[in-house]
Simulated scan of single mutants.
Amino acid sequence: MKDILVDDFQYTAQELLVRNKSILDLITKYQDSNSRVNRAVIKTVTQCGCLSINAHKQDVSDDASFDEMKNSANGHVEGTLCDNCRDAIERDMGRNLFYLASICNTLDLNLYDIILKENDRIRMLGKYNLR
């Protein structure tokens, strides 16, 4: 069922993309949509205030186990997204996914297959696939 949803999204993106069909246009639109996601997240802190960022060095000892490292890592985000910020971020992420799907269409790639392959890679490598 999930493959149908991703494939339907990719097909819809293909049907609705009329103007920016050049791979060059798509790449720049994808980058622009990515920067809009970043900006929307930053606005949650700087304009709305529903989130705050308390960033500091991640203190992990050199001899820590994988589970200790995983449990001690912090996302540095405090608070909860308000409805307005959540909507803005979701809208910008949706636009970002639209351009990603459009790039896949132009290159004759299947987004669902890419997701499956990456999921297989990260599951196979497990903790050795640290990012």
Rank of each mutant, 00 (worst) to 15 (best):
R131T: 11
V77D: 01
S22R: 02
D63L: 04
Y128E: 09
Y30Q: 06
R121I: 15
N71Q: 15
N74I: 07
E68R: 00
C85M: 02
A88C: 10
G75M: 04
F98T: 04
Y11K: 06
D120C: 14
R86L: 12
D62M: 11
I53E: 14
M93C: 09
M69D: 02
T44K: 02
C82S: 01
R95V: 14
Y11E: 09
L16W: 05
K127A: 07
L97V: 09
I122S: 13
S72M: 03
L97Q: 08
F9Q: 00
E68V: 00
R86Y: 13
T44R: 01
D25L: 04
D8P: 06
Q14Y: 15
E118T: 11
L107D: 05
H56D: 13
A13I: 01
I53C: 02
A13L: 00
R19L: 09
L107V: 05
N96A: 08
I27S: 08
I53G: 05
Q58M: 06
I122Q: 12
R39G: 10
L111W: 07
N96I: 00
Y99W: 14
R91M: 12
S72A: 14
D63H: 05
C104N: 11
S72I: 08
D87W: 04
T80Y: 07
R123Q: 10
Y30R: 12
E78R: 02
L17Q: 00
Q10C: 03
R121N: 11
E15N: 03
D32K: 14
A40E: 10
Y99I: 03
Q10K: 00
Y128L: 08
I4L: 06
K43E: 14
K29A: 10
S72C: 03
D62G: 07
I4K: 10
F98I: 02
L125Q: 14
G79I: 01
V77W: 01
Q14G: 09
D63G: 04
V60E: 01
L81D: 01
G75L: 12
R91V: 11
D3R: 10
R39N: 10
M93A: 15
F9C: 06
D3V: 11
L24F: 13
R91D: 12
Y112D: 07
D32C: 09
N38A: 15
I103R: 00
K29H: 14
G49V: 04
Y112K: 04
K2C: 08
D92P: 01
I23K: 01
Y99G: 07
